[in-house]
Design a protein around this nucleic acid. Structure first.
Lengths: 227, 227
DNA sequence: CCGCTGCTGACAGAAACTGACACGGGCCGG
DNA sequence: CCGGCCCGTGTCAGTTTCTGTCAGCAGCGG
C-alpha cells in the first residue's frame, strides 16, 4: 500500500470512530508501526486535517471529511459551483456559511478560466451576481420585517419606485422572485430580482407581522390548501 | 518540492495549455528530467487523469479538472450535496446530468453516515428524495403540456384528488411548489411538492397552450409588472 | 508510583525516486 | 531512405524518503 493511500485510509478510520481512537489501534489496522502512525498524523495535520490528540485518550477527528483527489469535467465543476452558490444564498444561516466556505475552498484551487466559465453560465445569479441588489440585504429586511424602497424596471423597461413589505423569497421559472405587499397597489405582488435596480432599506417596520402577511399570501396563492 | 505537489502542478499546467504541450516543456518548467515527467504522467493516468499523448505532438488534457484533496466540514459536505441535488433537478439537461455525475463521484467516497446526514437535512427534496413524486415526471408533464392527476394532502392531513394543468415549478419558503391550473377550482393554485402523495400522468394534453397559461398566471401573480 | 496514552529524536536498513543513457516506434517532410 | 519531432520504456547508480526499533519525555487518572 502506498503512503498516500494509507493517509486516506487513516482519515476514513478517524471519521469512522465516534470516540477517540488510540494510535496503537490505528497502527494495528493499517499494519504499520506506531511511529509511522504518529508521522502520518503529523503529515495530515500539517495538511490541514483537524485531528486532535490527547495523551491517555487517543485521536479524534474534530469534524469533517477529506475528499480525496477527484476528477471532474468542466460541466461538473459548473454544477458544483452553481449548486453551492444557490445554497449560499438560500439555506439556513449555517448552511449558507458552509456553502460559501466550500465554494471558497474549491475556487481557491481552480484556474481562473474554469471559474470564469461558471460565472458566465446564466442559470443562476449568484450572491454577488448580476447587478441584482444584495440578496442578503433583502433577506435582512424580511427578517427585520422592514419596508423596502424598490426601484423596479418592468418588462417594457419602465422604471417605477415602490415601497413594499417583503415577506418571502422564491424562485419560479428560472427567475428569482420576491413576494411582498405593495403599498401602491394595496395588494401582494411579486418582483423579479433581476428587475430590481435598487432596494433600499427604509429602516421602518411594516405595520403587520410578517407571519400574518405570509398566511394571507398563502391563502391567496392557495399554497396551503389549496382552498 | 515534494512529488505530490509536483503532480498537482503538472495537472494545473496541462489545464493551462489549450494546445498539446511537450514533455520537454513540462520538464523545463518543473525543473525535472524528461524521464521523471514520463513517470509522473504515468502516475496521473493510472490515477484516472484523462491525459492523451501523441508522439510528435505532445500531451493534452482531454477535459476536466482534478480537484486535489480538500477538507470539508460536515455542513460543507451537506451544502455540496444539497446544491448538486438542486442543480440535478433543475438545470438545463446537460447541467443536470453533470450535477448527477458529480454527485455520484462525491457520494462514492463518502462514508454512509455523512451521506445519510445530508439526506436528512430537510431543506430540499432531492430528485430521488423524500417520498415526493418524481420531479422528473412532473417536469415532463409540464414540457408535454399534459394534465396530471394529483393526490394531495393539505395542511390538516386531508387527502384530495385533483386534475391539474401543471405550468411551472418553483420554490418559496423552503417549500417546493408546483404552479398549476386546477380543474376543480377553475383557477390557478400552488401545490407543495412535499404534500403531493402521487402524481400520475394522464396522457392528455391540457386544452390551452402552456405559454398562454403562464402569461395569465404571471398577470395574476403580478410577476411581470407588477400591475 | 504505575499504567495508559501521545509525542519526538536518532539511526540503520528498506523502499521509492531521480537522472543519464540506450533503444523502440509513429508521423512527417526533404 | 534518412533525419527530426515527439512519446514511450527499461536499466542502473546515486539520492532521497520512509520505516521500524529504541529511548526518553509528558499529561492524566487511579
Amino acid at each position: 500500500m502506498s503512503r498516500s493511500a494509507r493517509l486516506l485510509d487513516l482519515m476514513q478510520m478517524l471519521r469512522r470512530f465516534r470516540r477517540p481512537v488510540t494510535a496503537a489501534r490505528l497502527a494495528d489496522e493499517l499494519g504499520v508501526s506506531l511511529r509511522t502512525v504518529y508521522r502520518d498524523i503529523e503529515t495530515l495535520t500539517a495538511g490541514g486535517a483537524p485531528i486532535e490528540g490527547e495523551a491517555g485518550l487517543g485521536y479524534v477527528l474534530k469534524r469533517g471529511f477529506m475528499l480525496p483527489p477527484l476528477m471532474f469535467g468542466e460541466d461538473e465543476v459548473d454544477a458544483l459551483i452553481l449548486g453551492l452558490r444557490w445554497v449560499a444564498g438560500r439555506g439556513d444561516p449555517g448552511l449558507e456559511r458552509a456553502a460559501a466556505d466550500a465554494l471558497a475552498k474549491i475556487t481557491a484551487v481552480l484556474p481562473e478560466e474554469v471559474e470564469d466559465a461558471a460565472a458566465r453560465s446564466g442559470l443562476l445569479a449568484g450572491p454577488g451576481g448580476s447587478g441584482a441588489p444584495s440578496l442578503a440585504g433583502i433577506r435582512q429586511a424580511i427578517r427585520a420585517e422592514h419596508k423596502l424602497r424598490l426601484r423596479y424596471t418592468d418588462k417594457k423597461g419602465a422604471a417605477t419606485d415602490r415601497v413594499v413589505w417583503p415577506i418571502a423569497l422564491g424562485f419560479f421559472e428560472a427567475a428569482e422572485v420576491l413576494a411582498a405587499w405593495c403599498e401602491a397597489r394595496r395588494d401582494f405582488r411579486h418582483f423579479r430580482l433581476d428587475r430590481i435596480a435598487a432596494a433600499e432599506p427604509s429602516g421602518q417596520r411594516y405595520p403587520k407581522r410578517r407571519r400574518v402577511l405570509v398566511a394571507e399570501w398563502r391563502l391567496l396563492q392557495g399554497i396551503d390548501g389549496p382552498g
